[in-house]
Every structure is written in structure tokens, then in C-alpha cells.
Amino acid sequence: MADGTDDLTDLIALMAKLPGLGPRSARRAVLHLIKKRGQLLVPLADAMQRVGANVRECLNCGNIAAGDICNICNDDRRANGEICVVEDVADLWAMERSQQFKGRYHVLGGTLSALDAVGPEDLRIPRLLDRVTSENVTEVILALGATIDGHTTAHYIADQLTDVTVTSLAQGVPVGGELDYLDDGTITAALRARRAL
């Protein structure tokens, strides 16, 4: 322990658990952090300490927040009657990057999955149903993945919401996409979602 190798081993093992990092990438990252101790390692450790102490899930929508309620839920300008339902916070952030959606969000925390025994009560679906009523929601936009579990979740939510307009994001050919490089499912979705020019 005196030479710090156990601490290094622990740090590498923890870093290797991060998405996109395996043991080799984690070792490289840790070595880089040690080389840049003053510029990266110490500030990173401090930032992680602050995030661990202060950041939590928004009690209303499930977004990441520095308090009990996130900035989006606290913004009265976004109380326009629209809620965009996403699977996780990364999806919310992707939607926000587009700067096109001006309503509020609801993070489910996953999708329904019979195989993994994930039911509606395991997600934030009951909270969504409460919000639709209490926030006078007029439209729920389902921005879920084009997977079997995503479609199952979307259909379940749509069945529960009978007094509100339920829409979903369009699916199909991406901007700049070439048909030759697309999978059959994407082409099928694009064909079904076609519209007049």
C-alpha cells in the first residue's frame, strides 16, 4: 500500500466500469490523469466530490438537478402543455442540443421489458400519468428508441393517456443519409412515415 499500487488498481478497476472504457483504456486514462495531476486529476477529483454531494434526480421529471427540481421544470416559460417523454437523461440532453423543443420533459429511467422483468411501476410511468393531469398537459411526445422495448413502452403509455394528444418522433432516413447504407428497418420506417412534398 505504501507505493500506492492498490489505490491505482482500484482506480483503474472503477474507470474500466465506465461506458466505452475497458481495462486498457482505463489504464491509459489513469496514467494520463497522473501525468497531468495538477491540471486534471485534482480538479477532476474535486468536481466528482461536488457532483456526488450536490447532484441528484429531479423529483418532478427525473432529469439531473443541483436541487430537488431541475432548471427546466422550474422555468415557467416551458409550461406550455407539452411533455416530451425520453428513456434516459442522455436522450433529454440530445433533445436540448437541438434547441427545438420548448416544453418540459419526463425521463422514464428505462423501457418496459418482459425479458428483464421491468414493468410500469419500475419506471416513472405512474409519475408521468400524474403530471399529465396536474400540469394541464395537452400533448405528450414520445421520444423513445426505435427498439422493440421502446415501441412496447410507447404503446403502453399511449394506451394509458386517453384524454391527451399523444405523438411520437418521426423515424426514417436521417439528414444526409444514403439509402445504400441504411438498414431495412430504417427504410421501412421511412417509407411508412412518408409525406407529400
Rank of each mutant, 00 (worst) to 15 (best):
R37S: 10
G38Q: 14
Q39M: 06
Q39E: 14
L40A: 07
V42M: 11
L44W: 01
M48R: 07
A53C: 11
V55I: 14
E57R: 00
C58H: 06
C58W: 13
C61S: 05
C61R: 03
G62S: 09
I64Q: 04
A65C: 11
A66P: 08
N71L: 12
N74Q: 15
D75T: 04
G81L: 06
E82Q: 13
E82D: 14
E82V: 13
I83E: 02
C84H: 01
V85N: 01
V86R: 02
D91R: 12
M95G: 03
M95C: 14
Q99M: 08
G103L: 02
G103Y: 02
R104S: 09
Y105G: 00
Y105H: 02
G110K: 06
T111C: 04
A117V: 01
V118H: 08
G119Y: 14
E121A: 11
E121Y: 11
D122P: 00
L123W: 06
L123R: 00
R124Y: 13
P126S: 08
L129Q: 04
D130V: 01
D130M: 04
R131E: 09
T133R: 15
E135P: 03
N136K: 13
I141A: 02
I141W: 02
I141C: 00
I141L: 05
A143F: 08
L144E: 02
T147C: 14
